[in-house]
């Protein structure tokens, strides 16, 4: 059923291909993706499948290209003038780098949460309502209220903010702000959520809350998370991909990667020998 992905052979030999749930096609399939920043070759021939309704974690030492790769999935790299992407990435079988494809639509389907919480300087309500409003997802105020409430509930923030929805989103604590950003992404009802080190600015309690949340969201969304914490990757993800110097070294079920890594570099990294 997925004719345009199958033929291209993986060029990275270390890809551990058998997916966990073979009965479902991958949500996202990337084939020989290369990314250049001007002259700099930031990502080399990356081929990977991302599966539905699970959390995929990208790990690797700093500067290895995790964020760069993540930003390819909703074409956030387009806004960097020097950035050039080659290769093929499909979302549900459609090429997302098709010149006829609309990035606005793509980004509505592939939401993103950033490393640093970046709430808009607006009220909590308006922060959440922003996506539904611009995409015209609701027709009445009641419906919008409902979307806002549901999104905040799913992001486990509702109880903390339900009495102060009109306060500015920037007045929340760091952890709350990050959950607000997650709620903001959920409110658009995307298919995929990308998270770039969502917990790096947070304390352990806030981190625990967000990890819990990811586990919860996994029921409905395909999630990709970049993290520097091996523990976090182990806790929240079902599949893990290890990147090194712009290459995808190894990808597979999280348990296998952490217990039986195939590549020496992966082993060195997860045992803390470098990075």
């Amino acid at each position: 059923m997925d004719s345009n992905i199958a033929p291209s052979q993986p060029s990275v030999p270390t890809v551990v291909s058998p997916p966990m749930l073979q009965n479902e096609p991958p949500a996202i399939a990337a084939r020989t993706v290369n990314v250049f920043y001007g002259e700099k070759h930031a990502l080399k021939d990356v081929t990977i499948d991302i599966y539905r309704r699970q959390v995929t974690a990208f790990i690797g030492p700093s500067g290895c290209g995790k964020s760069t790769f993540l930003r390819c999935f909703n074409r956030m790299n387009d806004i960097i003038e020097t950035c050039r992407v080659t290769g093929r990435i499909t979302l549900d079988g459609g090429d997302i780098y098709d010149p006829r494809l609309d990035v606005v639509q793509l980004r509505a389907r592939v939401g993103m949460v950033f490393q640093k919480p970046n709430p808009f300087p607006k009220s909590i309500y308006d922060n959440i309502a922003y996506g539904p409003r611009i995409h015209g997802l609701t027709t009445s105020r009641k419906e919008l209220d409902n979307v806002v409430e549901q999104s905040l509930r799913r992001a486990a923030l509702w109880d903390e903010v339900k009495d102060r929805l009109s306060e500015p989103g920037t007045a929340l604590s760091g952890g709350q702000q990050q959950r607000l950003c997650i709620a903001r992404a959920i409110a658009v009802s995307p298919d995929v959520i990308l998270m770039d080190e969502p917990c790096s600015a947070l304390d352990p309690i806030a981190t625990a809350k967000i990890e819990e949340l990811m586990d919860e969201l996994r029921q409905d969304y395909t999630i990709i998370i970049v993290t520097h914490s091996m523990q976090q990757a182990a806790r929240v993800s079902q599949r893990t991909a290890f990147f090194h110097l712009g290459e995808l070294v190894e990808v597979g079920p999280t348990e296998e990667i952490f217990t039986r890594p195939q590549d020496k570099r992966t082993q060195d990294y997860i045992t803390g020998r470098f990075g």
Binding site: M1, D2, L91, D92, G93, G94, D98, R100, L101, D102, Q105
Partner: peptide, 10 residues
Amino acid sequence: PRRVAESMMP
């Protein structure tokens, strides 16, 4: 976009 979108819906 409509055509593209349809092609994205296999």
